[in-house]
Write a protein that binds this DNA or RNA. Structure first.
Lengths: 229, 229
DNA sequence: TACGCCATGCGTACACTGTTCCGATGTCGT
DNA sequence: ACGACATCGGAACAGTGTACGCATGGCGTA
């Protein structure tokens, strides 16, 4: 009855669905990602998707691993010439970039552990670098864990504000205005003296600067721990 | 028509609703938290809740600030006698404990920035400690940011596994079994040599040990950065 | 004491969600 | 040419957040 694509090749496929879902989640946010939405975008019936994926949970897992498999920026995979610190910093920046590219990714990190093949590949590269700093496999594993952990927390904090802005539909300026008003009110209450001091004296560094500062400190501490181990 | 509570005092209140919601979210997970569920638990109609809170979003914000306001464990607020490093470590452990006590809390951190009064109070205490390490307000702010960020990432990673176990209803052993099977399969593929090395050689440290290791390293690096600044 | 206002509670309804069931359709192997 | 089969998709179901409007009863005021 309906017109079908000539040749009978399937219009839907796991890969097409996942790619479309990633695109939609990037554009509209993970909350707005619904099966009906994906199907409409793909020009197919809603329930047809279930011929290729088991359910929404599995779909999200596939999405997560798919974006972890995106080409890492070149700085994340330099030749093995440099020292391990700059290389590890490169890997961290690459991970941060991936998490920032797909704001929903960090949210999923708190719901299920990422264990897909592409995630494992990233771990493998990081472990290789850490292995150059220490021969102790346990120490190397903990080093990688600490760095990944810091990156995740940093991006999460950074995205929280951005997401709040997006869902409320505020522009950067409106948001600043809104938060500024609230902060001023809190400062005037005088109950948080140190917070006041920060607001009044500290210059506002952007998220990138904060990320780099903390990462440098962490790597310094790791180097110290590994060197004396 | 219905029996009402004598004295006409309102049975519902924002505080009662928030407390109940926190209890339910702790017990059943944030996904199972629905308005109908809260109302049933409270013995009231579903839409009655909206007399006291604006909507689910606001409710969650209230929940977040409520648990941030829970009494911090004593170790988090020692007298100002000790050095700033151990005090900051105490604050970090206190934050970690709060996030672990309410597994849904870390998930919300990636959706909206925490700005409630109780959150600000915690920031204030941390800034006080950081201020003892450096006179530079900007440096102090970045130090606090780095520590909080690390804690959030660490707990997020830790909870991801726990949550996955809970939603699949697996016991610790079943989960280990399930993941172990998958890991063995990956190892046998031989595509991730460093990952293999970790699996084979590294001893498995629990989440608490990993947290402490990374935190110590971060604090070491921060001390170096602040000392030379 | 009697009246009316108004905060509070809540039943109904609506537009959504993910998912299961089952029928229709078209292609391919035999 | 015919039957098996994979693919597609409409209908239906249980569940969600919440807007609307009506009942109810306590309280301030006359």
């Amino acid at each position: 009855m309906r017109d079908r694509r000539p040749g009978g090749r399937p219009a839907l496929s796991e890969e097409r669905i996942v790619r479309c879902a990633v695109r939609l989640a990037d554009a509209e946010g993970i909350d707005a990602l619904s099966m009906r939405c994906i199907a409409t975008e793909l020009g197919s019936g809603t329930t047809s998707l279930y011929r290729h994926i088991a359910g929404k949970d599995e779909l999200i897992e596939l999405m997560v691993d798919a974006v972890y498999g995106e080409d890492a920026p070149p700085e994340a995979a330099p030749g093995p010439g440099g020292d391990w610190r700059t290389e590890m910093a490169g890997i961290a920046r690459g991970l941060r970039a991936a998490l920032l590219r797909h704001p929903w990714l960090a949210q999923q990190a708190s719901r299920r552990p990422a264990l897909g093949p592409n995630v494992l590949a990233r771990s493998d590269r990081a472990l290789a670098v850490a292995g150059r700093a220490t021969g102790d496999a346990t120490a190397a594993a903990m080093t990688v864990s600490a760095v990944m952990t810091y990156v995740l927390g940093s991006v999460t904090t950074e995205l929280a504000e951005r997401e709040a802005r997006r869902t409320t539909g505020m522009t950067e300026e409106e948001w600043q205005e809104s938060v500024g008003e609230y902060v001023r009110q809190v400062v005037d209450s005088g109950r948080y003296p140190h917070f006041n001091r920060r607001v009044l004296e500290a210059e506002e560094r952007d998220a990138g600067a904060r990320f780099t500062f903390g990462l440098d400190c962490l790597l310094t501490g790791l180097a110290a721990a590994l060197g004396s181990g």
